[in-house]
Design a protein around this nucleic acid. Sequence first.
RNA 1: GGCCGGAUGCCCGAGUGGUUAGGGAGCGGUCUGCAAAACCGUGCACAGGGGUUCAAUUCCCCUUCCGGCCU
Length: 307
Amino acid sequence: MVSQRKNNKPKLIVVLGPTASGKTSLAVLIAKKFNGEIVSADSRQIYKGLDIGTGKATKKEMRGIKHHLLDIENPKKIYDVARYKDLADKAIESILQKGKLPILCGGTGLYIDAVAKNIAYPNVPQNWKLRESLETKSADELFSELKKLDAKRAKTIDKKNKRRLIRAIEIVRLTGKKIDTLKENPKYDVLLLGVKKEPLELEALIFKRLIKRIKQGMIAEAKHLHKKGLSYKRMTELGLEYRYLAMLLEGKIKKNEMINKLNTKIRQYAKRQMTWFKRDKDIHWVASEKEAEKLISEFIGKNTLLA
RNA sequence: GGCCGGAUGCCCGAGUGGUUAGGGAGCGGUCUGCAAAACCGUGCACAGGGGUUCAAUUCCCCUUCCGGCCU
């Protein structure tokens, strides 16, 4: 049951779920039915040319529904949440302007939350020079440095996670200010729909999809990307399929080995996604499109009734 | 039949007469601009039976199984 609180914020539907759960087709269906457009919340589909490996919707699968935030960056460049949030808000705004229903769809929990909860990240851009120099230090050293600079942040941070430690130090060093507590003040009235799949079913779906991707030419896609200048190092950073495809192309692993290991990695990724989603008690887990439609109808109708 | 080498947790794989590696998988988790990333926690063992010893996964003997060589 959707909560019946009254507000006049614009409505946003979010379709989320683990990889291979079938988010895209559900989102398209919803868009068709409720006159919507889709905003992707996928940190890798952002990139041009990463198509088969990321499972980017094809023209045909889109069924005439407009998709935003796909293919907006060169895969050589590193993207990030802050930039994503900015563009997502703009896309949503433009959809609303047209009088249509915005549907945020993807599996990147961080990106989804940034938009759905309107999280304001500290306004400090990456300083790659600084990062490079900090990278040479150990986690322990970084931690004690952070402790000196911002004791409060040091208390909650992952002591062993260099990447996080470096960013935290970057913020204090560049602004001289300590990190504020993150503010959440949603600008949309959000309905969160999670695509529910039983673990075993999801496992099967993942494997099936992996085999399908290989048949569709995922290996050739990676070869082509590399020929166009995408380094194996960068492909490794991109993770999952591209990481393993890079290993294959470099001759570090055999095809069979790639399939097996990659399959495991994708499964683990799906688990990590679920770990993230599980924390959000507002998600309505739906097992069918009917359930989803019902919830959306209620959700959309509620303000008209109350207003 | 004879000789030799093995037998370690779900898998790979070190090692030691007492403090009982390390990976991977599994399971659980973290999340303040790289998030398909980064990071953390965790159960599970020494083939079986006898010895020797204060103490054996580690030394000795036997049995079983596996691999190699010989007849």
